[in-house]
Each structure stands twice: as C-alpha cells, then as structure tokens.
Amino acid sequence: MAKGRVEIDLVFCKGCGLCTDVCPASILKLDADTITQKGYHPAICVDEAACTGCATCALMCPDVAIAVFREVRA
C-alpha cells in the first residue's frame, strides 16, 4: 500500500518536468498522451503505490501544481 499520494492540478501544471527530475522513486513522468488546456504535457504519477509522500516534487514545482498527502495511523 502507498504511504503517500500526489495530486497534480492540470490547471496549474506547465509540464516543465522539474518534479520528474527530482522524484526519488522516479514515478513522475510527463504524460505525452495528455494535453492541458494551456497546451502542456502534464506530469503524472505512473506508480501510485510507490509514492512515499516525500514532497520533493512539490518543493521544486514552480507552479504549485502539486499537493502531497501522506497516510497517518489512527
């Protein structure tokens, strides 16, 4: 089960790829099959189960397009 999860907002993502460069799990890619309203190939998470919720991607995102969540034990 994943420990973390990212939400990438396609309204904000400009497909710069800075998040894909730094993801320690290498699970963020630019999605060549999707074109956003502004005409960019956005980032997507290709292996949600592998996300640790480290938020390194969000740290580098110039467009604050990424929100990061982490599971907490009750």
Binding site: G4, R5, V11, F12, K14, G15, C16, G17, L18, K38, Y40, G53, A55, A58, L59, P62, D63, V64, I66, A67, V68, F69, R70, E71, V72, A74
Partner: peptide, 22 residues
C-alpha cells in the same frame, strides 16, 4: 486517514502565473 504534507500556502493566491514552464 491522510494528512496534507504539502499544499499551496495561504499567502499565495490560487492564480495561474504568467511565468514560462520551469
């Protein structure tokens, strides 16, 4: 249960900037 570990700061309005990608 999830907690947000990274979200848009309050002092930054939810507006798409005019800046180029990257």
């Amino acid at each position: 249960e999830e907690k947000a570990v990274f979200q848009r700061p309050h002092a930054l309005l939810p507006v798409v900037t005019n800046y180029c990608p990257g």
